[in-house]
Every structure is written in structure tokens, then in C-alpha cells.
Write a protein that binds this DNA or RNA. Structure first.
Length: 103
RNA sequence: UCAGUCAAGCGAGUGGUCGCAGUUUGCUUGUGAUGAGCAAAGUGAGGAAAGUCCGAGCAUUCUAAGACAGGGUGCCAGUUAACGGCUGGUGAAGGUGACUUUAAGGAAAGUGCAACAGAAAUAAACCGCCUAAAUUUUUUAGGUAAGGAUGGAAAGGUGGGGUAAGAGCCCACCGGAGUUAUGGCAACAUGACUCGCUCUGUAAACCCCACCCAAUGCAAGGCUAAGUAAGGGCAAUAACGAAGUCUUACGCGCCCUUCAAAAGCGCCGCUUGAGCUUUUUGGCGACAAAAGGCCUAGAUAGAUGACCACAUAAAACAGAACUCGGCUUAUGCAAGGCUGAUAUU
RNA sequence: GCAGAGGUGUCAGAGCGGUCUAAUGUGCACGCUUGGAAAGCGUGUGUGGUCAAAAGCCACCUCGGGUUCAAAUCCCGACCUCUGCG
């Protein structure tokens, strides 16, 4: 099953209606859905860095989400990164994201 | 040893576990069409993938020819599919040198511009110098571009002769123009002879000359549904058609909306290509030719991450998006050659 | 991915080869006006270096080169910002 969000409309819907959870470098939007499988999208703006930095950050975020099994079923998420997020190491990222999902 | 200069080459290895994206094979299962799931095998970013600055392929615009406008290039020869690139030369400039840089045609086809300063800026008498006359403070007329002052630029330069004072007026050297000989494919170089030689700079100002260029970019464009479909508007020797303008030929009615959403990639274009590599041959070289071997990303919210081990395992700039050839910029290493200085032998 | 536009004092914005590089508005400071303010009027005002200070001089129109006697302006290269195209 594919757990990625891909459509422009879904992103704009979640940004509008979702509940926010903040920390210094990330924002998590969450919205309840009808389906059992969760969906998660990643939004990383150009201010974070150049193409290779954004790519690497996204891969790491995907890896953390996969290993820790954070998202609950019947929910859709968008994880947004702010400038500076690309400078963290893998372990630091892990702490940030886990605490964010607990909120 | 220090300083410099040229610069070949390399730029995250190997094995394992989990995870991601194509390909092939097998099994299961579908659509109007493309497909989807599971398992195994094997593959998976760069020297700049970047900037988008040039040049091509490829695709579309019914088609074709010409003129004007517009744009580009600009020493010579070669190289290439092509180029504004590259290679080898020539001239010029910089550096003690190795070496580096170079938009380097034409100002005698024409036009424009040259602020301020200065007497005068493309033609000249402000001061000065000399001669003559008047007057004896100086003024007037003429000669003169050697000196002063201004400027980025002042009428070829330096020295000597000459002269009332001066002046290519005359001479020597340098510079310039023309003719010619030799060498070179050529740019050009060297020499000889002639001419005393008015004619600033700017063409990265307009322009002239020579050569080249249609425009738009894979978000091009095509396929499935979907084509002689339905509706509306305009028009009759018209209008439309290469997308700036015009002419000629030629073709043909032209334009808009809706039926279709899933679907801003559902599928094709999409990776075998001016491809990579080894050897030999030709060439100073860029490069070319021949023979052998190889198949090496193809995504579409856009595939490479995490952990462990190997003696250490750390590291810059940085991520393909139709594809090539260059240029430019960012950046970690670095063999070796050469130059200058110092020291020792 | 492709195509295009721009960068000038604190801010906005003209100038697009030449006198002293920068009009105008805004902001800021001071003065006049007022019982006090606002508005209005007038004057001044970019940054850095040199200097004890003022005046003067020099440099700076995103940055680095080039053409020219002279460049914010013309040419080349970089950096940054913004816009359009399904």
C-alpha cells in the first residue's frame, strides 16, 4: 500500500483544515480520514537548501517515519520543514520528529 | 628550501541486514486503453548533473521562393554534425623568467560625439621670438608653430645644420606611406628603392564591408476515448496560411465553444547514441581512419537512506528530467614538467 | 524543465556616456506656527576612508573584469530577487 500523499488538492486541503503541531524546525499537519491506511506528505521549501540537501532531508524523514511507525491509521499528515532542518544529523532529526508526533 | 607557472589524472571503495525506482523471468489477477500484486536475478546520478551563455540533433507551425527589417560573428590556416568552441601560427600587450592575455576588419564612403580647460579641437597667433613703422609708456602691420600654458589628444619624434626669428627648409637615425624582391598555403616577416610625409580619437556610437541566421522549445508534439460529431460567429475572386513587414507562386473556407472526467505523464516521445572503451596507423596538435570488445539511470510529489564490519573510514562543491558538443562558474586532492631566488657540492 | 524582467541614499523612484555622480517624494533632525499637537511652511540630511575638527579630497549606483580621455549608463562574466508557461 502506498502511504504517500501526491495530489496538489490533498496538500492544500490539509494545510487549510489540519491541526498543527510545531517545533522549532518542523510543522506537522494532521487530519482524520475515512480510510484505514494513513497517508503522509513531505513539504520542503527552497529556502531549506539546494536540491541535494532537500532530497537528503526527505529521504531521512521517510526513513524515520518507516522505522518508528509513527502515523496512526485513519489519519492523513503533511510534514513541513523550515530553513535549518538540513543541518541536523540523523539522530537529532529522530528526536525532533518522535516528540512532534507525540503531540 | 621558498616563491611561482603549466597541468595529465582521481573525486565516497568492498561485504552484509532493512527500505526505494526501473528492467528481465516466473506465478496470480484486471481494463475502453495503459496495467496491478508477489518472488528471484541483475542494474541504479556528476565532473561539474549547476548557470542556461553558445552550437546541433529531434518535433511542430499546408508548402515554396525572394526582398526589406532584425540578430550574430569578425587576424590567418586547420578541425568538426555545428559553433561565438578547440588546435597550430601571426601581430599587439603584460611579466626578470617559465608563461599568460587578446571582440585583433574598415576612421582616405558618409554622419554623430569629444564635457571642463585652453588663444585654438580639425583647425590655430593668447603669451613669447623676429622684422618694419609710428611713438618712445607702448601701439600698429607682417613673419614664425622652436619655447610657455591647457588637455586624454596640439599638427611625426630626437639630434645637427640652417635662419632676421623659425619651419622636413636640408641632413642622419627612428616612425609612416607607396612600389618591389625573397620566405610562407595565408595572416605576416625580412631586405631594397621611392616619397619630406596636411589629413586627432571614438565603430563594446550609428554605420560600411565579408560571411551566417525562419520561429518556437519535450510544458515541443503525438496516441486511446474522438470525428465526415454537435452548436455558434465571420466571409465570397474575400479571409486564412513561416508566428516582424511586404511581394509572388501555391493550397484551402477560416475562427471559437462543447461532448471527458479519472488524466496538469494514462501511454508514446524516453534512451543504441555525431555512444563508451582497448590497440594500431596518420597528424606538431585539435582530430581522423581501421580492427576488436561492451550495453551502462529513465523518474513524474520525482528513485541512493539507516545500521554493522573491513588497520584508520574521515572529506569539498553538489542530485539526471528529451539527447549530445563546448563555454562559464562552484569545489577536495594531486603525480610530473618548467622558471626565478637562496644555500650546499 | 523552458522562457523573460530587474538590482540606484532608510524606503519608493527618475537619470541611461560629460560640468560637483544623483532629480523628486518619503523618512529623520532642527526652526517657524500653536495653549499643546496634527497639518502647513522653511533649512539641513547617504555610507566609508583621510583629518584633532571643519572644509576639501578619494572610493562606493549588487559584485568582478573590459572598451573609452571619461562608465550608474556601453560590452562580457558571476550573484541575488521577481514574473510567466501545463
Amino acid at each position: 500500500m502506498d502511504h504517500r500523499l501526491k495530489k496538489e488538492r490533498q496538500f492544500s486541503y490539509i494545510f487549510k483544515k489540519g491541526k498543527r503541531a510545531n517545533c522549532s524546525l518542523f510543522t506537522l499537519f494532521s487530519v482524520p480520514s475515512k480510510f484505514q491506511c494513513y497517508k503522509i506528505g513531505y513539504s520542503i521549501s527552497k529556502k531549506v537548501g539546494k536540491a541535494n540537501k532537500r532530497n537528503k532531508l526527505k529521504r531521512r524523514l521517510k526513513e524515520i517515519v518507516r522505522l518508528e511507525k509513527l502515523p496512526k491509521p485513519f489519519f492523513n499528515y503533511v510534514l513541513m520543514a523550515r530553513p535549518g532542518a538540513a543541518e541536523l544529523s540523523f539522530e537529532e532529526l529522530k528526536k525532533e520528529i518522535v516528540s512532534l508526533f507525540k503531540k
